[in-house]
Each structure stands twice: as structure tokens, then as C-alpha cells.
Design a binder for these strands. Structure first.
Lengths: 216, 216
DNA sequence: GTCTATATAATGATAGAC
DNA sequence: GTCTATCATTATATAGAC
């Protein structure tokens, strides 16, 4: 029981087909002909509506940014993040194309990808501050850098989804993969990986040395 | 004082130019003409040596795989990994093209990218086992899944390097970025992020629920 | 708004001279 | 081995009919 694209305007039908194909195969590997075929219109009509392939991409970017920032209005705390995560995973069809498109935008040199990553870092930093304030998260020295690392870890899971799934013996990244990795991920943030601080001491020393070498 | 490409055969000069451009702009965004121009030869000669663009890519893949597996002969323990890391970071020019190429291979649907990621996971799992055995790493329940998560975190930093650098106010990912993030990364593996295990308990419960819903 | 037909450009690949 | 010239294909984009 899906609404599909029956009630959409032709313009948005083309745009949605483009989002789907750009997200699955990347911008460079997708042709206007592919998009026209998927939207069941002529190639000329695609240009008629969006002027150029670049214009079509911009329209896709704007649309994705719109529906996402609309969703980001919700509070950015851990609980709502988990709710969003669950929502995403429970309705793959709805969010799959959107997620894949964002993934490609982050891998390409795209302004949309930049703003998404930046937003994730900002959100992570806020959650860090809030968590430290309410005692659920340990006080962190370098909160900015830690937020960047945490955001990178999250986004890396999305970008590398194909590899992650394969490594866990799955055909594609999905609910099953998350069920396999969810606990190990949280476990790594709950119990230290290293038995003692020898690696941290070594890292501090290495960077100290690097800094001194830098300034002679 | 660089050796540059003066003493290389024309064939390898073309191949190196291809590795550079494929790594920087991706396979689909690089034309044979671009490569020919970079190698200062005619487009026809590129085809003469490699038969097709796909053939050229295979040659690049083989070459990268060759020099990397040659390097992987070295012991895969934490110390030599850190030495390799330092080596990479101290000689950017030498390894930059290679690293960028591997990064693209991992983002593309490429057999080379697959084997690299798989190798990283295997190496990580070995280091996990060894570290647990010698007491430097805490005993881990699901070692496979944890190795996948750790490998994803590492690889994510490489794939998302551009974003990481930008988030830390740098123009490109390099030694300076690593100096900023090295300690926070190791710190996260040394001290738990969460103050208690409430999130772990919640994650276990959520996955338990998901599993029960699955089987009704 | 939508289509067909076509112009124009870029690209991968071929052929043959040197 | 290397180049120039060219082909064949594919792509974006335009023009004009309906």
C-alpha cells in the first residue's frame, strides 16, 4: 500500500526520479535520459523544467534540504535522535532515497553535503554540552574536536554502509545490520576499549613531539 | 628535491597520472584526454598502452594493490601501524595520490575498495585479539562487530577527511588535522564517553524488542 | 506542458603514418 | 612507441510542432 508518485506533479515526479538515481549511482553516472526514463517522460521535458542537469541537481538539493531542515525542527536530544533513527529504519522506502542522496552529497564536493556535515557536528556538539551538563556524559576537554570525531564516526557508518554490511555478512545495510552493530557501538562509548591509558600517553607524547619539531 | 617522473617509463607515467586524477576527481569525472594531458602524451597513446579506460583502471588498481600489499608485509601491530601513520603523514607527496585513490575505490563500487576494507577489518580484528591477549585491550564480547565498527571509524576519517578538516578550521586534511584530533580519538577509546551504562541498557533493550517483533 | 527531431559538444576508441 | 586524424557513440541542450 504505497502512494507512489501517482498524485505528484510531473515536475516533482522528475525531481524524485533524479533524487533516486543521483543517490543510487551518483551525479556523474546518471544521465538525463536515465532520469527521463525513470520518470516516464521525454528527455526534453526534463530540460524544459530544470533548464540543465546542474539546475536539476540544485532543485534536488533544495528539496532535500527543505524536507530535512523541516524535520530538524524537532529537538536534537539523544531520545529524539533515537526516535528519528528508529523511524528511518522502520520505513526504509520513505527515507532510503533521501538518505542515499545525502550520502552522495557528502562524498561529492557539494555545498549540500557540507551543510549536512556541519549541521551534524553542531548537533553533536550541542548534545555533548547537554549531556555533560545533565551528567549523562563525562566532562570532555576538547568538545569541538570530540564532536567532530563522533560526527565522523556516525557519518562514516552511513557512507561506508555497503562495506559494513558486507563485513557482517549482509547483502545490504539495513535494520538487521543496525541490530548487529548497535550494541557494540554503544558499548564502545560506555566501556573503554583500552585497558589503561598507555595509548593516550603515547598519543600525547607524539603530538607534543610533532608540535616541538614544528617550531624547531 | 623530488625525483618526479623523469626516470619512469611512459607507460608508468600515464598510469601515475591516472592514479592521481582518478584519486582526486573520481573515475567517472576523469577523461582519457585529462590523463593524456597530465602525462604529456597523446590520448591515443593512453589507449595504445591500456586498451580502454577500464583497462587503465585495472592497471591502476593492480599497481596500488601491489605497492600496498608489499607494505602490508610489515607486522600489523599497534606500534607499526603508528609508524606507518607517521610515515604517511610526514611524506604527504609520496602517499597522497595513493591514499586518495584508495579513498575513491572505497567510495565507488570497486573490488579494490572491497578488498581494502576487508583487509582493514581483518587487521583490526587481529589487533583486537592480540591486544586482549596481552592485556592492553579490554576483553570484548562481539569481536567481529567491534572490529567492523573500529575499522569504519578509521576509514570514515579518511573518506570524510575534507569535512573533518573543514570542521576543524583547516583548508585540507593533513598533519595539522591529525595533531588536533589524535588525542581526542585515543581519549574516546581510553575513557568512556558516557558517564554510566544507561545508553547501553537502552540499546540492548531496543534490539531485544526488535528481535522479538521480528519473530512475533 | 509535453513531445519529436536535431544541433552541438564531449568522450571512448580506431586507423594509419612516422 | 608515439602521434595525428578521425570515427562512432553518447550526452547535454535547443527548436519547434502539437
Amino acid at each position: 500500500m504505497r502512494t507512489d508518485t501517482a498524485d505528484l506533479t510531473t515536475r516533482s515526479k522528475i525531481r524524485d526520479a533524479a533524487i533516486d538515481l543521483f543517490g543510487r549511482h551518483g551525479f556523474a553516472n546518471t544521465t538525463i535520459r536515465d532520469i527521463a526514463a525513470a520518470a516516464q517522460v521525454s528527455p526534453g521535458l526534463v530540460i524544459h523544467h530544470f533548464a540543465s542537469k546542474a539546475g536539476l541537481r540544485e532543485a534536488c538539493d533544495r528539496h532535500i534540504l527543505g524536507i530535512s531542515s523541516q524535520r530538524a525542527v524537532e529537538k536534537a536530544d539523544v531520545a529524539s535522535l533515537q526516535r528519528m533513527m528508529a523511524e528511518y529504519l522502520s520505513k526504509p522506502d520513505t527515507y532510503m532515497a533521501e538518505t542515499a542522496y545525502i550520502r552522495q552529497a557528502i562524498m561529492d564536493d557539494s555545498a549540500l553535503g557540507d551543510s549536512f556535515f556541519d549541521a551534524l557536528v553542531a548537533m553533536t556538539e550541542d548534545m555533548l554540552e547537554a549531556g555533560i551538563a545533565n551528567g549523562s556524559i563525562r566532562p570532555i576537554e576538547d568538545r569541538r574536536a570530540t564532536a567532530v570525531v563522533l560526527a565522523t564516526n556516525s557519518m562514516g557508518m552511513l557512507v561506508l554502509g555497503r562495506h559494513v554490511a558486507r563485513s557482517m555478512g549482509q547483502v545490504e545495510f539495513g535494520v538487521a545490520t543496525v541490530n548487529l552493530l548497535g550494541v557494540p557501538v554503544v558499548d564502545l562509548y560506555t566501556h573503554p576499549l583500552y585497558a589503561d591509558d598507555r595509548f593516550l600517553v603515547a598519543a600525547r607524547a607524539a603530538i607534543q613531539t610533532a608540535a616541538e619539531t614544528e617550531e624547531h
